[in-house]
Amino acid sequence: MTVGLSPFRGVLIAFASYAVFAFSDASIKILHGALPAYQVAFIGSVFALTAIPFLKTANDGWLDVVRTSNRALWILRFVCGAIGAICSVVAFTELPMAEAFALLFLLPSFVTILSVIFLKEDVRWQRWTAVIIGFIGVLIVLRPGFRELSIGHLAAAIGGLSGAISIVVLRAMGPTEKRISLYGAALFGSFIISGLLMVSEFSMPTPRQWLFLASYGILGAFGNVLLMNAARLAPANLVAPPQYSQMIWAIAFGYLIFNDSIDFPMAVGIVLIIFSGLLTLARERKRGTPLPAAVTSADNQAALATAAEPSAVDQKA
């Protein structure tokens, strides 16, 4: 039996999932760097475990969360999950939310470059144009030489790159890899690597900090569940674009909560980066480029890369 798509519902759920991710990211920023980034990532991954029962299907066993058909690629996603989680925490701690998102939205451009290098994809001038537009947007946002760059900018760029590597890994592994395994790779990567880094420096959170740590992890898990449900109801080319609605939330949070401001050059750069991402998605849809399964990592920003299409396996009852 085939599960019918309900595109309109799927798109609405996708918008809701990205809103939830934005609230989760705001929880990081509210902590103001009071705790080490790897401790925040570790505790967030602990709370993210709550998503597993909701992501597990009737055909999945509990051990499938660590089983895989390609251990080397699974481990690569494991490592990228940890890097992405820690870097996203640093980025949202150090930068205005809109600026952090702008750099993380470079992910589609990174995917294009890595797909050419490692998957030998045939990329034509339209997609290269999108990549160039995206990097021009970044230069306008950063304005190197005219404003001071920080560790937050570097972390956001590395976070986007690690997310892109995860997407290329998903493409290389193919649609037969179980979603719960792909989720588990990134989740346990963040859990184990961040946990090891945390051993030498642990700060007991205050009750208020626990509240926002729980908000970060649980909302991230809830966003993952919503996004996977959206991907079951609507095709990839409809689920992916709503991710850019996070910029609206970022600007709103920045103005209302964090006293952030966006000047005109930064606004222009953000528009170019978003246009670059949308152009890349449009080209992949037209060319029928295989898209990864509906999986995001423990790092909420992996949702920026999610362009999920239900596989034949998932469509069978």
Rank of each mutant, 00 (worst) to 15 (best):
M1Q: 09
T2D: 07
S6D: 10
R9P: 03
A16K: 04
F21T: 11
S27H: 01
F42E: 06
G44V: 09
S45L: 07
S45E: 11
L49N: 14
L55M: 14
L55G: 08
T57W: 10
L63C: 09
V65T: 04
A72Q: 05
I75T: 11
A82Y: 06
F92T: 08
L107A: 06
I113M: 11
I113H: 08
I113P: 06
S115F: 05
F118P: 01
E121F: 11
V123C: 09
A130F: 05
L149G: 04
S150W: 02
L154C: 04
I158T: 07
I165D: 02
V168K: 01
V168S: 04
V169H: 00
E177M: 04
R179P: 00
S181Q: 13
Y183M: 06
G184L: 01
F191K: 14
F191I: 14
I192P: 10
L196P: 01
S200M: 09
P207W: 13
A214P: 03
S215K: 03
I218L: 15
A221K: 03
R232L: 15
A234P: 02
P235W: 02
N237F: 12
A240G: 09
M247K: 09
A250C: 13
I257Q: 00
I262G: 01
P265M: 14
A267Y: 07
L272G: 02
I274A: 03
S276K: 06
L278K: 00
T280V: 08
T289G: 05
P292V: 14
A303W: 06
L304H: 08
A317T: 11
